[in-house]
Simulated assay, not measured.
Amino acid sequence: MQIAIDRIMHTYDLMMSRTQAASDEARTKVTDYVQSLFDGGEKDPHRLTVFGLTYLRELDGSNDPVKAGFTGL
């Protein structure tokens, strides 16, 4: 599980420019989220990494299709 969290944070830090405090907060949130997935039975580190990155992108709003300019038309 720790490997997945380290991958998530490394990748997310490359994608986003944030302060150390924001990075620490994101690590705490994604650790709790990945732990819940792990406790629920998901053991694949690659899937945990994808789920964790998706979770962080949803939290910061960068995964919002409307903000990205997609209107469905």
Rank of each mutant, 00 (worst) to 15 (best):
Pro45Tyr: 01
Thr49Glu: 06
Gln35Val: 03
Gln2Glu: 12
Thr54Phe: 04
Tyr55Val: 08
Asn63Leu: 15
Phe51Tyr: 13
Arg18Pro: 01
Asp6Ala: 14
Tyr33Phe: 15
Asp13Asn: 14
Arg57Pro: 00
Ile8Ser: 00
Lys29Arg: 12
Asp39Val: 03
Val50Met: 02
Asp39Met: 06
Val66Asp: 05
Lys29Leu: 02
Met9Ile: 14
Met16Phe: 01
Met16Gln: 13
Ile8Asn: 01
Thr49Ala: 03
Asn63Met: 12
Asp32Ala: 15
Thr31Trp: 02
Asp64Leu: 07
Arg7His: 07
Ala22Gly: 09
Gln2His: 08
Thr19Phe: 02
His10Leu: 06
Gln35Asn: 14
Tyr12Pro: 01
Asn63Ile: 06
Val30Thr: 15
Glu25Cys: 10
Leu14Trp: 04
Arg7Pro: 00
Arg47Cys: 00
Gln2Trp: 03
Val34Ser: 03
Leu56His: 07
Ile8Leu: 04
Arg47Gly: 01
Gly72Ile: 06
Thr54Val: 05
His10Tyr: 10
Asp64Lys: 06
Ser36Val: 10
His46Pro: 00
Leu14Ile: 13
Gln20His: 05
Leu56Met: 08
Arg27Val: 07
Asp64Asn: 15
Asp13Ala: 11
Leu14Cys: 07
Thr31Gln: 08
Val30Asp: 00
Asp64Trp: 12
Arg7Ser: 05
Gly69Lys: 09
Ile3Val: 13
Asp44Tyr: 05
Ser17Glu: 15
Gln35Ile: 01
Ala26Cys: 07
Ser62Pro: 06
